[in-house]
């Protein structure tokens, strides 16, 4: 490994400044991807170095609020990885059928596409009426968008295809109405979803859930923070509850795995021991 160069040191100081000034802890994020996003940022605002960005973040009151949205990643889709949703539909929901009430925590929900995908599965399984989905994200801007549940019509075609690939058999048009170039999800899909900010790096458990979904969020964390987040989510599960991670994420490199067993290997669904 090469020694740290000034850029590396400035980058670490920038993360420290964000933490001390704004209370967002990116010091435990995976460095390489975070740094690439921050570098894009330097270009966009025409800043010469991370030290210049640090100055701006410390001194310009509204700058950080606007930039948080770009530092965090908002990629999300409906029914991403059809095999995951197939496993959720066919293997997990039948077990959850036996519970009189269901709490579901969707951590790192971004603009909500995956939350509503899960809501649709629950509706089709006849479970939604007894379910509450707590959807959280670190970024309040994306939560506003998620709450709206409005997506560009241009996305509908791929959403429909992903829905069908995951085993959905109803007309997907049952779930939205189009006006101009916006597809608005029907209110019944949204009615049992509660949105709130929550930071996996600093906040605590707030729920006793039967199902926790946190997909493609941990990839942005370093191993220590992954361990904290997985331990926190496992604590938030009731006895024999389910934890769903992204399909290229794994609990097997973490200490927190001791409280989990593999339930569906490829779909990365774990179960609390």
């Amino acid at each position: 490994m090469t020694p740290l160069v000034p850029d590396d040191i400035e980058f670490e100081l920038l993360l420290e400044a964000i933490w001390q000034k704004h209370g967002y802890d990116f010091r435990q994020y995976a460095r390489s991807s975070l740094r690439r996003r921050m570098e894009a940022f330097l270009q966009k605002y025409n800043l010469a170095s991370f030290s210049h960005l640090q100055y701006r973040i410390l001194r310009d009151p509204s700058f950080f609020g606007r930039s948080l949205d770009e530092i965090t990643v908002r990629t999300t889709e409906m029914f991403r990885d059809s095999f995951f949703f197939t496993a959720l539909r066919n293997e997990v929901l039948p077990i959850l059928q036996t519970y009189p009430a269901l709490n579901i925590w969707h951590a790192g929900c971004s603009t909500g596409e995956e939350v509503y995908s899960v809501a649709i599965l629950l509706m089709e399984a006849g479970l939604y009426e007894r379910s509450t989905i707590y959807a959280t994200d670190i970024n309040p801007v994306v939560l506003e968008a998620a709450q709206e549940g409005r997506y560009p019509v241009a996305k509908i075609k791929e959403m429909t295809k992903a829905y069908q690939q995951s085993g959905g058999v109803l007309p997907f048009s049952n779930y939205y109405t189009c006006k101009d170039d916006v597809a608005k999800l029907n209110p019944e899909i949204k009615k049992n979803v509660v949105f709130s900010t929550h930071n996996l790096a600093t906040d605590e458990s707030f729920i006793d859930a039967q199902l926790v979904i946190c997909r493609n969020v941990l990839i942005y964390f370093d191993r220590n923070l992954q361990d904290r987040a997985v331990a926190l989510m496992t604590r938030s599960l009731s006895h024999r509850g389910f934890l769903c991670l992204g399909s290229k994420e794994s609990a097997s490199f973490l200490k927190a795995k001791v409280n989990l067993e593999v339930f569906a290997k490829d779909a990365k669904i774990y179960r609390k021991l």
Binding site: R31, S32, V73, I219
Partner: peptide
């Protein structure tokens, strides 16, 4: 992995992203 960016991290492991 298809669909993900792959990074080498300082601590001797890989990282992925959906950037």
């Amino acid at each position: 992995p298809p669909g993900y960016h792959l990074y080498v991290e300082r601590l001797g492991y890989f990282g992925l992203s959906l950037d």
